[in-house]
Computed example of a mutant assay.
Amino acid sequence: MSKLETLLSQYAAYHLDHKNVLTHFVGIPLIVFSIMCLTARLGITVEGFEITIALVLIIASVVYYLRLDKVFGFIMLVIFAAVYPLSLMIAKMSLGAWLGWSVGLFFVGWVIQFIGHFYEKKKPAFMDDVIGLAIGPLFVLAELVFLMGFRKELEQRMLTQARKQRAEMDAKSLQSAHP
């Protein structure tokens, strides 16, 4: 199993309920965008080019995603390139408006995430493994690609492994609840 399949399967083990996955289609983009907005205000200018923390995070994320999968990495690059200018516009607002939008979107995104996990009856994946914070956006992209009918073999391998992992997680929970 590839590193991509392993990471997506681990994440999917916490996201087998369709209502939870649907909430992630809204919550994760809001959270990622809010982080872009928060970090787009901070940076330095080098020879007339503004290098923000958001830009550094985008580059690091895209490099990571490209190493996992060229197609998904490229799609993430396109998405980030399309959204980054909007985050710069928000970052240039007054301090109150910038913080209001950025923190507000962050809060709403997390509320939506936790609503999804209420349906799932599982805590978010990042609570057991912080890499889940980086895999979440990739998972949402993969789910969108699967919904569009592409990469169905990857989807099946991911789901098969995720269901096995979920069964193991549930068995451990039962054992710890009933010693």
Rank of each mutant, 00 (worst) to 15 (best):
L38G: 03
T39I: 02
T39V: 01
T39K: 00
A40D: 01
L42E: 00
G43P: 03
G43V: 05
G43F: 04
T45S: 13
T45I: 10
V46M: 11
E50M: 07
I53W: 02
I53E: 00
A54G: 04
L55W: 05
L57V: 09
L57D: 06
L57W: 08
I58K: 10
I59M: 12
S61C: 08
Y64G: 09
Y64D: 08
Y64F: 13
Y64P: 01
L66D: 04
R67K: 15
R67L: 15
L68D: 08
L68S: 07
K70D: 12
K70P: 11
F72H: 13
G73D: 10
G73I: 07
F74K: 08
F74V: 14
F74C: 11
I75S: 01
M76H: 13
M76C: 11
V78T: 10
V78L: 13
I79G: 03
F80V: 09
F80Q: 07
F80N: 13
A81H: 03
V83Q: 05
V83W: 11
V83M: 14
P85G: 01
P85H: 04
S87V: 01
S87F: 02
S87M: 02
M89V: 15
M89S: 03
I90M: 08
A91D: 05
A91V: 04
S94V: 01
S94F: 00
L95K: 14
G96H: 05
A97R: 10
A97E: 15
W98K: 03
S102G: 07
V103R: 01
V103I: 15
G104K: 06
L105R: 08
F106G: 07
F107S: 07
F107P: 00
G109R: 13
G109V: 12
G109S: 08
W110F: 13
V111W: 09
V111R: 10
I112T: 02
Q113N: 09
F114I: 04
F118I: 14
F118Q: 13
F118K: 15
E120M: 09
E120A: 07
E120F: 11
E120T: 05
K122S: 09
K123M: 12
P124V: 11
A125N: 05
A125W: 09
M127C: 08
D128N: 09
I131R: 14
G132M: 06
G132C: 08
L133Y: 04
L133G: 02
A134Q: 07
P137N: 01
L138G: 05
L138D: 06
F139L: 13
V140W: 04
L141C: 05
L141V: 09
E143F: 12
L144D: 01
M148I: 08
M148P: 03
M148K: 11
G149N: 05
F150N: 01
K152Y: 02
K152N: 12
E153L: 10
E155C: 07
E155R: 15
